[in-house]
C-alpha cells in the first residue's frame, strides 16, 4: 500500500510519519499542499506541526490549501485519511470531522506521554487493537481541548465515532487524567463513515520500544490491514 503525507507550510511531523510508514515496510511519499491529484494513495496523512503558523486559529488557513478539495473527494470515495495533532485541527476546520478545538484548559503547551483507551476496534484504524486496550502515546499541543455541542456529541457516541479517550494506566477515563480539558476526555474521533480519523496523540512517535513505546504501530498496522483487504 502507499501512504501520502501532505506537507503544508509549517508542518513539522512529516518526516516522523514518513519514517513510521517506512518502518512497517510500506510505500510512502510527500504531497505538497498545492497538489490536487491524490490518485494512487491508499491513506493520506495530515501530519502535525503549525501549518501557516497557527495564525488566526489552528488549521484555519490550511483548510483553503488547494490539496484540501482533492482530500474531500478522496474521503468521499472512501479513502482513508488520518489527521494527527495539527492534522486533526485541519480536519475539524475543514468540516471533515465534527467539532472544534479550543486552547488547553491549563493554557500551557503540553508535551508528554498519555494513556488513551480504545473505544471502538472496528474502524480501519483500530482493528489491531483490543477493545478497552490502553495505548501509551505522546501528545504535544497547545490546542487539544476538543469541543462539540451536546447534540453532536450524542450522535458521535451513538455512532461509535469516539475512538480514543484519555485515561489512567488501567483504562479508567477520569478528569484527573485528562491533560487538556477536552470534552468527555476525547483524544480521537472519526467521521460517521469511519474512514477519516483525527487524533491529538502522535502514533508516529511511538513506533519503537527504544523510544519509549511502540503502541503507535498498532494504528499504522491497522491501516495497512484495512487497505490490503
Amino acid at each position: 500500500m502507499r501512504f501520502g503525507i501532505v506537507v503544508f507550510p509549517g508542518s513539522n511531523c512529516e518526516q516522523d510519519c514518513y519514517y513510521a510508514a517506512h518502518l512497517i515496510g510500506e510505500q510512502v511519499s510527500y504531497i505538497w499542499h498545492h497538489e490536487t491529484n491524490l490518485n494512487g494513495y491508499d491513506c493520506i496523512i495530515l501530519p502535525g506541526g503549525f501549518s501557516y503558523g497557527d495564525y488566526l486559529r489552528t488549521g484555519a488557513v490550511a483548510k483553503f490549501s488547494p490539496v484540501m478539495d482533492a482530500l474531500v473527494t478522496f474521503a468521499e470515495k472512501g479513502g482513508l485519511v488520518i489527521g494527527i495533532c495539527n492534522g486533526f485541527q485541519i480536519l475539524l476546520e475543514s468540516g471533515l470531522l465534527p467539532g472544534a478545538m479550543l486552547r488547553n484548559k491549563g493554557l500551557k503547551f503540553i508535551c508528554k506521554y498519555v494513556n488513551v483507551k480504545v473505544e471502538n476496534t472496528s474502524t480501519p484504524f483500530t482493528t489491531k487493537t483490543l477493545r478497552g486496550e490502553v495505548l501509551r502515546i505522546p501528545i504535544a499541543h497547545n490546542e487539544g481541548n476538543y469541543y462539540a455541542e451536546a447534540g453532536v456529541l450524542e450522535d458521535m457516541n451513538k455512532n461509535g465515532q469516539i475512538i480514543l479517550r484519555y485515561c489512567d494506566p488501567h483504562g479508567d477515563v477520569t478528569e484527573e487524567w485528562n491533560p487538556n480539558g477536552s470534552i468527555e476526555n476525547i483524544a480521537g474521533i472519526t467521521n460517521k463513515e469511519g474512514n477519516v480519523l483525527g487524533l491529538m496523540p502522535h502514533p508516529e512517535r511511538a513506533m519503537e520500544e527504544i523510544l519509549g513505546s511502540e503502541d503507535g504501530r498498532k494504528i499504522f498496522e491497522s491501516i495497512v490491514s484495512a487497505t490490503s483487504k
Binding site: L56, R57, L92
Partner: peptide, 8 residues
C-alpha cells in the same frame, strides 16, 4: 468562512 469558527 474564515475569520471565525462558527462551532465555537
Amino acid at each position: 468562512r474564515l475569520l471565525s469558527n462558527p462551532v465555537i
